[in-house]
Write a protein that binds this DNA or RNA. Structure first.
Lengths: 220, 220, 220, 220
DNA sequence: GATGAATGAGAATTCATTCAT
DNA sequence: TATGAATGAATTCTCATTCAT
């Protein structure tokens, strides 16, 4: 009896390592890369799904097998960046034993990432000379929250003075993004200079901050 | 009566209190206010001119008597904000005789403006829980440049140490916008707390910054 | 003072009898007539909005100023027919003093309408040789309900025997539509023959029907 | 083993109980049942092949091993119904020796079928409260023709008076479908009541009909 | 035969803008 | 100037169908 033939009728699923899966993964990357370029060229607002498809050898329908809209593509790009850098940032802070290590480690990692991943950062801030846009996606925002939690932990451990962790996080994020923006515009994109500047500013400033006694860091 | 004359746009001295002028000004404001609301609700990217017109009792054609596109409306909104706050910020810094006055004056003015002009700030940063957007228009960016120039001037006067004015401007802007964002989310929108935090951070940090001797502030 | 000019700013509404209104009404009819022809030619299912627009000198966007979809156009066509014939049918039955007048008046009016309004009826039943479709829109169904109510009234007046008015209405509707269909297929579309047949069938049959005593026609 | 042979479609005598055949039959039924539900839910016009496939555990390509289009699926569903009831209707009429048996047998068989096969009838007439659709497929129409031929035969035998067989067929069909529709809407779906009503109406009416002498039933 | 992603024609719809009134 | 319907290019998106695996 021909088992192959009998089984073939309701076949469960083709091997997930076949050529098909490879093509699928490649197509997804093709779209993401095309979108990155188009966003950088036209700006997020002016980009249409058509533009992205045109920058691709794929058929229009194929786009919709992977993403629902340009928003979804954009988020995928952002999230990819955020997912790559978040663990590094967290790890850097986790192994810090001093305020200096915590702050400089955070800034250095961020600025080096931005300098090395320039095309992504351009997408991140789709800035022409006349209009600057910054979009933070859920994954990015989650990274902000992680920073805050790390700060709360560092305060609890006594590494940081008991300051407003929420505002401090905001200040670090603000300095990081704005300096990155300026750095990216300079002919010499030097992460070390930016890191030195930001670290000095924050370290000098932190000890001058007003202290608070929020419930979670109050003395027993 | 000469109708042609009345219709002619650049009439030498049209009575600014005439009913026609009032209507014209009102229509402009009607559109601007409608746009503010629609931008805040849908976000800039998703908003169409149609949406703005729909939020108005006016006809679609009337829109084009006042603005050419949604971009122009958006800029008008932004510029209105920026134009109102920029002179105040500049004046505050002009009359400062110490670093402390320069910094605290800048932050206080900004945070008080944001706290009092909440709806405009919402338009400026169309933030849901899952996606945060910030757009800087030319007028806003011009305000950044003005800050930098004021910093350069203050450094030249010896008020500030000779630091990287470009990065310092970026840091101030970053801290200001991110803290404003956090402040806006708190149930108690207290500009004083934000001002105290930001001022302490910057004052403490500035003196720790690496000094530079850029051409424009170098000794003769 | 020029009142005309002052008032002109927030003008309430242009005279509804202007050229604009005329064009609007004409465009609506243009679309309806084009749709009628396309439905008759391609059948309802195969027709697309594009097809209707193509059969029109109008721009694609114009269609959507009048209708949302082909379904809406279809309903407008149907309702137009129903609205034209319903009052006639009702009036015919209202002035009937015998069962014979009630029944023959109903059928005659219907068959004459169908014979005279052939293109609408073809749309009504978009029948090829291999697939027959009949769609009843709300207005049509309301006409069925009206017939039932007229029957209930006639029963209450003693004109009809106390039969199941719901089933009788259904029977009349079924005979009317199916005979109309057959009539429409004959080379000689003669409403009189159809009327005679249907009237004889119903008159002969009604007195043989089982009688019922529903609450609303029960003896006091 | 000769694979070619196995794949060849018109194999003389494939074992009808083999596992392959079972799977094939099952897939066909799976599609048909899914289509029935989707048609009933979305209506025929709004249903796409995608919708049917989605309601199935099968792959899209598999669909085309069984049907070419939704039209073909729809016809298969209809034909299934028609093929089941047509022989019964014909047999009922064939064994009738009186008009009463002919008519009551036809209606009873039809109404009992509808009452017992409710889901198919729903597909046949996709009726919401606001839009009612009836579609007759070739097989259904063939059933109408068969009724007409049976009527012609009965007239030739002298069982029926010499009436217009075409119109009489139409009347029977119209009464049958409309009453079935009303019956299906009642809480008590009682075929006996519908049969009694329809039979009484037709029997009473037939003898009142105008007689004709069409060529085919004319005396020699 | 079963699978399901790719295809790309084309259908539905929107939208900024114009212009006769 | 205000009006608002017409325009039609552009965009989004769906869908039946194919075909390599």
């Amino acid at each position: 009896m021909d088992i192959e033939l009998i089984k073939s009728a309701p076949r469960p699923a083709p091997k997930p390592t076949g050529k098909r899966e490879l093509t699928k993964a490649q197509n997804r990357l093709t779209i993401l890369e095309a979108a990155r370029q188009v966003f950088a060229e036209l700006g997020y607002g002016a980009t249409t799904v058509r533009d992205i498809i045109r920058a691709t050898p794929l058929a229009s329908g194929t786009f919709y097998n992977y993403f629902q809209s340009k928003e979804e593509v954009f988020q995928a790009i952002q999230d990819e960046s955020a997912l790559r850098i978040r663990p590094r940032l967290h790890e850097e802070r986790a192994k810090a034993s001093t305020v200096e290590e915590f702050i400089s480690g955070t800034f250095r990692t961020f600025f080096e990432f931005v300098a090395g991943d320039h095309s992504n950062f351009r997408t991140l801030r789709m800035n022409t000379d006349t209009l600057r846009v910054r979009m933070d996606t859920p994954e990015t925002i989650a990274g902000f929250e992680e920073l805050r939690e790390d700060l709360v932990g560092a305060i609890a451990k006594g590494m940081f003075p008991p300051v407003d962790a929420d505002f401090l996080m905001a200040a670090i994020v603000g300095v990081a993004f704005e300096l990155a923006e300026r750095m990216a515009r300079r002919e010499l994109r030097d992460p070390a200079t930016a890191t030195a500047f930001a670290t000095a500013l924050l370290l000098g400033g932190i000890h001058a901050l007003p202290t608070v006694t929020p419930p979670d860091i109050a003395a027993p």
